[in-house]
Design a protein around this nucleic acid. Structure first.
Lengths: 183, 183
DNA sequence: CTCTCGTGAGACAAAACTGTCTCACTTGGC
DNA sequence: GCCAAGTGAGACAGTTTTGTCTCACGAGAG
């Protein structure tokens, strides 16, 4: 009877990922509920977006925690992170494109926390000699977000297979497109 | 006296990149003209978006042509492409996030043409042994778009230096984050 | 100077979206 | 069976955005 708030957020995210300018009615329909009920759970469109942002941050932090970024090789840690973050990729793809979130006075503190932790991973990799030092941790972090968004979208569009999601991102980000010389 | 349509499109793109949900009035103000004049040049919001899409495709095709993708090594051709496409990065960043363009019956044929040409570059690199074959050309093409968008946004936000734009994208896409063994 | 073209400013109605409310219905617990 | 909570459907006003129109202004060509 009662609507599951978490599942509602995921439906909303899926719909908004498909069409960022979806109206409250479209979001409600896509979630299989009426607009009235959607409004009962979220005061308004803005509140919905904020809740999605909150959920996204929460899931990313959970993924970062689960990936244990400071254990083992940096490349392996990055692979774990991508693997852990995969379930949240759709939501993340939406949030990344939602520049509405960043135009205000200041962005959500949660993103900064995540940026710091992920950038620290790249920095660790650079200091250990595992990663190259001519690409800044800030750019690598940004690129990670971008690739996750691109991959989520490409899978959604059927341009690439969903099962390859984390492999494609990790391999491209870590190893690049160039063929390695066998060593 | 008369408004330069091309420059108008660029102002509009810049404004819409900053805030995708800008109203016609905001776009007009940002371009230094009145809403009435904006409407004289573009029948409506939809027409404006379509014109931007057209411009984006046009610029990308020009970049692809100028990059001479079938000459020399694939990696160098890719570097040329990124260099050539840099001026259009802002516009491209907006178009990539404008999923409105892809939800309709069918996407603009121009994108398909571009996809084919860029994917062909990656395929050529794979066949020549220059690029690895476990990442599909489709994914590499998608990743290129994503990285261009991320980089344009990161530069706009001041997170990375604008002068490093093409270097960052090319190096990451081609070589990845991993440190190469000196050969 | 005069005429014309493009523009800015503003008015206006129509449309779309939002937020709120009411009412009837269903579901599940008691 | 009865009640309470949650829901769907729809109505409603308020707001925002859109698209169109008119009119006056100013620059540039003749």
């Amino acid at each position: 009877m009662s609507v599951d708030r978490d599942q509602l957020l995921r439906s909303a995210a899926a719909q908004l990922t498909r069409k960022g300018s979806s109206t409250m009615d479209e979001v409600a329909r896509a979630s299989g509920i009426s607009r009235a009920t959607l409004h009962r759970h979220f005061a308004g469109r803005d509140a919905l977006i904020r809740a999605l942002e909150e959920l996204g941050i929460q899931e990313c932090e959970a993924a970062v925690n689960a990936a244990r970024l400071d254990e083992g090789g940096a490349a392996d840690a990055l692979r774990r992170l991508i693997k852990e973050i995969e379930p949240a990729a759709g939501l993340l793809a939406f949030l990344v494109t939602e520049n509405q979130l960043f135009e205000g006075d200041e962005q959500h503190e949660g993103w900064s926390r995540l940026d710091v932790r992920i950038a620290a991973l790249f920095k660790r990799g650079q200091e250990s000699g595992e990663f190259r030092i001519d690409l800044t941790p800030a750019w690598l972090t940004e690129a990670l977000y971008g690739l996750i968004g691109s991959a989520a979208w490409a899978v959604l569009e059927g341009r690439v297979a969903g099962k390859d999601f984390s492999y494609m991102i990790a391999e491209l980000l870590i190893g690049g497109a160039q063929r390695r010389v066998e060593s």
